[in-house]
Structures are given as structure tokens and as C-alpha cells.
């Protein structure tokens, strides 16, 4: 069931993610190291972080600080990390994957990149809103609207 992942593959992904946040890098490396149909080419190319989306959410008070438990503004680096992660999780490999055919049936590997990602947004009153999104754009829209009451 499980297959070994060549060290070089993970290393390539890490190199490709060199400019990304640590969390995003770990996330994508984890995806790459997971067994399954994800292609090396796709993983190694890494996600492209949209700086316009980063700018859209950076500075918003939507993040709960693990150390203090307080809601605070999300930093630029955290915003970049967030967008990178969601992009990696929702981006499908470029081009049409090939369908295998057996006895008239067809199979397609649609990749380890998930379609749907759940994100959270902390509100000024300490409550948390949770949303299922399918793209970095959608995530940024949801997160940038916070705090709802000041927009």
C-alpha cells in the first residue's frame, strides 16, 4: 500500500519552496512525501504565491496567536504562508491527466491536491468563523472581509 518516496523528490520540493513560509513548505513536502498519484513535476514546481492576495489579508485581525491566545493581526509572512498552503492544496497538476482504460472503464488520478480547504477567521469578539473554500482567491475574499463589522 505504501511506497517509498525518493529523497530527491522531497528535496526538490523543498528547494522549490525555498521562498515560501515554513508551514507551507512543510505542508507541500508532506503532500509530496505521501504516496499516491501526485506527480513529481507538479510538486517540484511549487505553488506561485499571489502577492495581491497576500496584501489583501496581511494586517487583518483574524489570527489567534498560539502563544498568547489572543486574536491579532496576521503578519505578511503568515499571510504568504497561508496563501501558499491553500494554493498548494487546491492547485491541480497542469494539463489534463491521462485516463487509463481497462475493459471500457476509465480511471483518472486527480491528484493529492485536495479540492476543498477549510480555513478559519477569528473575529474581534473571540468567536471563530469557519469556511470551506476551493481556491486562494476565495480564501482571501473570506479572510479580507474580516472583521465583518468594519467593512
Amino acid at each position: 500500500m505504501q511506497q517509498s518516496v525518493p529523497r530527491s523528490l522531497a528535496a526538490r520540493a523543498r528547494r522549490a519552496l525555498g521562498t515560501l513560509g515554513f508551514g507551507a513548505a512543510l505542508a507541500l513536502v508532506a503532500l509530496v512525501m505521501a504516496p499516491g498519484p501526485v506527480s513529481a513535476q507538479d510538486a517540484a514546481s511549487g505553488p506561485r504565491v499571489r502577492e495581491d492576495l497576500v496584501a489583501k489579508i496581511a494586517g487583518k485581525r483574524i489570527h489567534k496567536d498560539r502563544a498568547t491566545g489572543q486574536v491579532r493581526a496576521i503578519t505578511v509572512e503568515e499571510a504568504r504562508d497561508l496563501i501558499a498552503t491553500i494554493t498548494a492544496l487546491t492547485s491541480r497538476p497542469a494539463g489534463e491527466p491521462a485516463a487509463a482504460v481497462t475493459g471500457g472503464a476509465e480511471m483518472m488520478a486527480i491528484g493529492d491536491h485536495a479540492d476543498h480547504v477549510v480555513i478559519s477567521r477569528y473575529n474581534p469578539d473571540g468567536s471563530v468563523s469557519v469556511r470551506c473554500v476551493a481556491s486562494a482567491d476565495e480564501a482571501a475574499d473570506f479572510l479580507a472581509e474580516e472583521p465583518l463589522e468594519v467593512m
Binding site: 505542508a27 485536495a114 476543498h116
Partner: peptide, 14 residues
Amino acid sequence: PLGANVLGSAGATF
């Protein structure tokens, strides 16, 4: 570890 404010994800593989 996922990005800040990212909780999780899932999808079909095949």
C-alpha cells in the same frame, strides 16, 4: 503544520 488559519483539506484521489 499548515499555513496560518488553514484547518484542513480533503478530496477524492481517483
